[in-house]
Amino acid sequence: MRAVTLEDLQLALVASEKFRSLEDCFVFAHMYLDYLSRYQITRISSPAHTNYIFYQYGEGYGSRMTRPLNTDLFIEDDDEFEMAYRWFESFLQDAERFEQGVVEMPQHQAFLSKKVVNQVVYTLQQSVGCVADSLTNANRARKRVGQTFEALMRMVIQQVGVDCQSRTIRLPIPGNPGYYMPYELDLVFSRKALITSEINYISASEIVGSVKTTSKDRIDKIFLDKYLLSELLGRDIPVVALFLHDVQRANKQGSPLGIASTFKKNHFLGYTVALKALDGVYYVDPLPNMLDNELLRAQIRDFQFFLTNDLWTLAK
C-alpha cells in the first residue's frame, strides 16, 4: 500500500462525500498524522508561545505554513491519537446511555482529567485545517474548514443520543402579517423534539447552536441571533456558541511566527450587557484569560464541559 501524499489529502478534503461520520474524520486525521511523520514535515515552534507550533510544507506547495497548533491539545503521534480516539468512541457510547453520569465511570475519569475530549476533537478538526492551509484557493479552504467543523459538532452531539440538525426557519415580522424572514441556523438540538431540517420553526424544547471555528468577525452575529430570535418569536430562545479556538498567526517582534488572540473581550462583555447574554459559550481550545478572568469564566467553558454537563442541563 503506497504512502498517502499531501495531494491525496487535499483531494479527500474537497470531496463532498467525505466527513459523513466520525470514523471518516478519524481516518482523515490519522492519515494526516502518518503523512507528517512519514515525510518528516518541517516543524517550527513559535518563539514567544512555545506550546504553539507550525508545520511548513515543501516548495512544491509554495512553502506554505499551517495555522498555529496548540501542542497541549494537538496529538501528533498517530498511535497515541488512535488510542485516544478509540477511548472517545467508548465515552460517547456511554454518554448516550448514562448522560451526565458518564463522568463518574472509573474507565473514563483519567481521560477526562486530561481533557482528552478536547484533544481528540481538536486533532480531528485541525488536521482538516492544516491540509486546507496547503491549498492555493484560500476562500475555498476556509469554507471547507468551517463546514467540516459544523459537521463534526453535529455528529458528536448526535452520537450521545441528542437529536441535532441544521435548519432554516421562518421568522415572523411584527406588524406585517404574512411576512416572514428566512433565517439559517447552524444547529438545533433537543432530547425531546424530533429534529429535522424540514421544520421551519423552533419548539420550546429546542436549543440553537452557533458553530464557528473562531469568534473573529462572528461574535456580533451570534449575539444578534439570540436577540432577534427571542424578540421576533416573543419568548426566550436558548442560544449557545461552539468555537474551536481564537488564535491566529501574527507578525510579532519581527517574527512571522507570533501568536495573536482574535477574541474581542470588550465586545463580548458589551453585547452581553446591551443585548441578551448567550446561554453558553464553549471552546475546544479556550484562551487562558477566558478561564482566569472572573467575568469571562462565568460564561465561557471548554467543550468537554459542554459535552459532559451543560448539554444535558440545556437539553432537558
Rank of each mutant, 00 (worst) to 15 (best):
R167G: 04
D220C: 10
G175M: 09
D163R: 11
G175A: 06
Y179D: 14
V188G: 03
T168Y: 03
E184G: 01
D225I: 03
F223A: 06
T196D: 14
T168D: 11
L224P: 01
I199W: 14
K226I: 04
A193Q: 05
R170L: 15
L194S: 09
I207V: 15
K216L: 11
F189C: 10
S210E: 14
Y180Q: 01
K221Y: 15
E184F: 01
P177Q: 08
P177A: 06
I169Y: 14
P174V: 14
S166E: 13
I202S: 03
Y183M: 05
R170K: 13
L194A: 11
F189A: 09
G178L: 00
R170P: 00
S203I: 02
N200Y: 13
L171N: 02
Y179K: 05
I173P: 07
N200P: 11
R218K: 07
K226L: 05
M181H: 03
A204P: 13
V211E: 05
I219L: 14
M181C: 01
T168Q: 13
K216R: 04
E184N: 02
S190R: 08
D225C: 00
F223L: 09
I222K: 11
P177D: 09
I173K: 12
L194F: 03
K216P: 01
A193H: 03
I173H: 09
G161P: 02
N176M: 12
I222G: 09
D217S: 10
V188P: 04
N200Q: 15
R191T: 11
V160R: 00
V211T: 03
L224T: 11
S205Y: 11
M181G: 00
Y201Q: 07
K221S: 15
Y183N: 02
N200A: 14
L171D: 03
I207N: 07
P182V: 07
S166D: 12
T213V: 08
R191V: 01
Q165K: 09
R170W: 15
R218E: 12
K212Y: 01
D217W: 01
P172D: 03
A204I: 15
Y180K: 04
P177C: 04
A204W: 08
G178K: 04
L194M: 07
I157R: 08
I219W: 10
S215A: 08
P172S: 06
R170G: 05
I222P: 08
P174L: 12
G175F: 01
I199V: 14
I173W: 07
I173D: 03
I195Q: 00
D186S: 12
P174C: 11
V188D: 07
Q158N: 11
S166F: 03
P182Y: 01
Q165H: 10
K192A: 07
K192D: 04
I207W: 05
V160Q: 04
I207D: 07
S210Q: 15
